[in-house]
Simulated scan of single mutants.
Amino acid sequence: MTTPALSVLDLVPVRSDQSSADAVAATRSLARVADQLGYRRYWLAEHHNMPAVAATNPPVLAAVVAAATDRIRVGSGGVMLPNHAPLVVAEQFALLEAAFPGRVDLGIGRAPGTDPVTAWALRSGTGQGDGDAVDRFPDHVDAVVAMMSPAGAALRLPSGDHVLRATPQATSVPDLWLLGSSDYSARLAASRGLPYVFASHFSGRGTAEALALYRDGYQPSEEHPEPRTLLTANVVVAASAEEARRLALPNIRSMVALRTGQPLHALATVEEAEAAPLAPAHEALAEEMLGRWLVGTPDDVAGRLIAFAAEHGVDEVMVSPVAGASAGTPADRAPAREETLRLLASALDAPR
């Protein structure tokens, strides 16, 4: 089995001992570590109105990360297109590509990335309702692709064609990926000849089925004659299995709260998570999640990651480092997340 390339997915978590400014500073530090270790790409998610997540604006965060690093690709994992006007997204990422040529990825998703009320507030500025925004998703994907191209997108008007370009004099364009946690985006990516990512870190089920739909239905495009995909995984790596499980506790608690409809809070420290055990009714759900995550020692996680990639036939895995922080950790750093990246990269470089 070959060793897959490594990339990073970051939600910019906000701990109970952090401000948003601290969380962004910790992301900047984490991105520098990933860059130095040779990780391939660094993607920022889009979530809104969540106490534990500062990743509300992927293009802004991508600019922060790109400016702080030298070679790693940066992008969105992903922009939730129904929340935004297609031209705005095209302009943002065309400008990122102009500033950091050859380093920008635009990952696009269809989910709201938030609760229904916040989604309404986001989409009221687009001039369309929730249903219209989702129903027109394929057309909006096509519009973003066309408007980022040097030729632009032509609107047919009675007075003649009106060309929309995301930026003047473009010499390169971002790589565009479709993201999803169901078979919808798999089918759409296949029909458009686009790269595709199934959110295996979030869904946990249906990965093989979604990838099979994508590969079986793939229609080659000029830019991508073959299907192209990668996997995502939640990962915690520590010197011992016990310590890794301990570091996973804050994020496990947060995900259980999300799945069971409990109030959401800033991410707990490890000690806060230990001091407030889960309700017995939620312990099975927590163990099920933990079983799907890659949590353990460097050799154990590296072996499982290689097997995971081989099982699904991919040569790249994007890890979301979900290690928590202990009390007293500097507010502008996430040392356990950084150490997860270091230990994993080192284990995968070692002879196996």
Rank of each mutant, 00 (worst) to 15 (best):
P4Q: 15
L11K: 11
V14N: 09
V14P: 07
D22W: 03
A26N: 12
T27W: 06
A34V: 09
D35H: 12
R41Q: 10
W43E: 14
L44W: 12
L44F: 15
A45D: 12
N49V: 12
T56N: 08
T56M: 10
N57I: 04
V65D: 05
A66H: 04
D70F: 00
R71C: 12
M80F: 12
P82R: 09
N83F: 07
L87I: 15
E91Y: 01
Q92E: 11
F100K: 03
R110D: 03
A111D: 12
A111E: 11
T114V: 00
D115R: 00
P116Y: 02
A133M: 00
V134E: 07
P138M: 00
V141D: 00
M148G: 05
A153D: 11
D161P: 12
V163K: 10
V163A: 13
A166Y: 10
P168A: 07
P168R: 02
A170D: 01
V173F: 07
L176I: 15
L178E: 10
R187D: 13
A190K: 09
R192F: 08
V197G: 02
S203G: 04
G204T: 05
Y214H: 04
G217T: 03
P225T: 07
R228T: 02
V237M: 02
S240A: 03
S240P: 00
L249N: 03
I252H: 02
A257R: 14
L258K: 09
H265C: 03
P277Y: 03
P280S: 01
H282V: 06
E287N: 13
M289L: 15
L294T: 01
V295F: 00
G296Y: 02
E311I: 02
D315A: 15
V319L: 02
A325H: 13
D332G: 14
A336Y: 04
R342W: 04
L343I: 03
L344V: 03
L348N: 06
R352K: 07
